[in-house]
């Protein structure tokens, strides 16, 4: 974390975050994004945002499950990678699908519910990303920061609805992601209950 020396694992996580982006840039520059590059890019960036959101949410329960408390310290970086791909996702949407037309954008926000929901998730993530600047974290204090960042659960819900509503052809992918999020949240609830019981026992 901030201030401390960055270990090999930190660089591994960083590389893992950057790789999908580099891959996309590579594929795009060699022109093999398929017949509909805009669609390929929105789908890819959206998928990677989901992947990092999943990873981010997996850190806390798995640190308990694997007894590796250090895992939690990579959560913030994974969250920022998620935000990075969400930003790309939004940018590709704005540039290639909306073509930076504000009237179009307004229309999309109002008439396409899955876009409204997706945009809501983007705004929440923006708040989380801004408050993740080290100086702001310190100013807020760890407790308040952690409380604020519980909005990630709202982001998860919005992301899943966004994915389900935009699926026309097959619900497979959206279903799998929603289930995985469900499992991660279930794990949290389970450990939370255990902790409460332990506290009750010691009290």
């Amino acid at each position: 974390m901030a201030g401390r020396a960055k270990g090999a694992l930190w660089y591994t996580v960083f590389l893992a975050g950057a790789l999908p982006f580099l891959g996309l840039v590579g594929v795009a520059s060699f022109g093999s994004l398929g017949a509909d590059p805009a669609k390929t890019l929105t789908h890819q960036t959206g998928t990677w945002a989901m992947n990092f959101l999943l990873l981010c949410l997996a850190m806390s329960p798995f640190s308990t499950y694997l007894k590796m408390p250090k895992l939690v310290s990579y959560r913030r970086q994974l969250g920022l990678w998620c935000y990075f791909y969400v930003c790309l996702h939004f940018l590709v949407f704005l540039a290639l699908l909306i073509e930076f037309n504000p009237a179009n954008m307004a229309k999309e926000l109002v008439e396409r519910p899955y876009i409204t929901v997706g945009f809501g998730g983007f705004l929440l993530l923006t708040i989380m990303a801004i408050t993740s600047i080290p100086r702001l974290i310190r100013a807020m204090g760890a407790r308040r920061w952690r409380r604020l960042h519980k909005v990630v659960f709202a982001v998860v819900v919005l992301a899943c609805i966004h994915f389900i509503w935009l699926s026309r052809s097959s619900l497979l992918e959206a279903t799998v992601y929603s289930l995985l999020f469900g499992v991660l949240i279930g794990m949290r609830l389970y450990y939370y209950r255990e902790r409460l019981q332990r506290q009750a026992a010691t009290a």
Binding site: A28, G31, D36, A38, L97, N104, R112, L166, R168
Partner: peptide, 16 residues
């Protein structure tokens, strides 16, 4: 789901 007032016309291969 889709804006019907305009459309994306695929006119050539590959390029962004």
């Amino acid at each position: 789901r889709w804006q019907q007032t305009s459309e994306r016309r695929f006119i050539s291969e590959g390029g962004l």
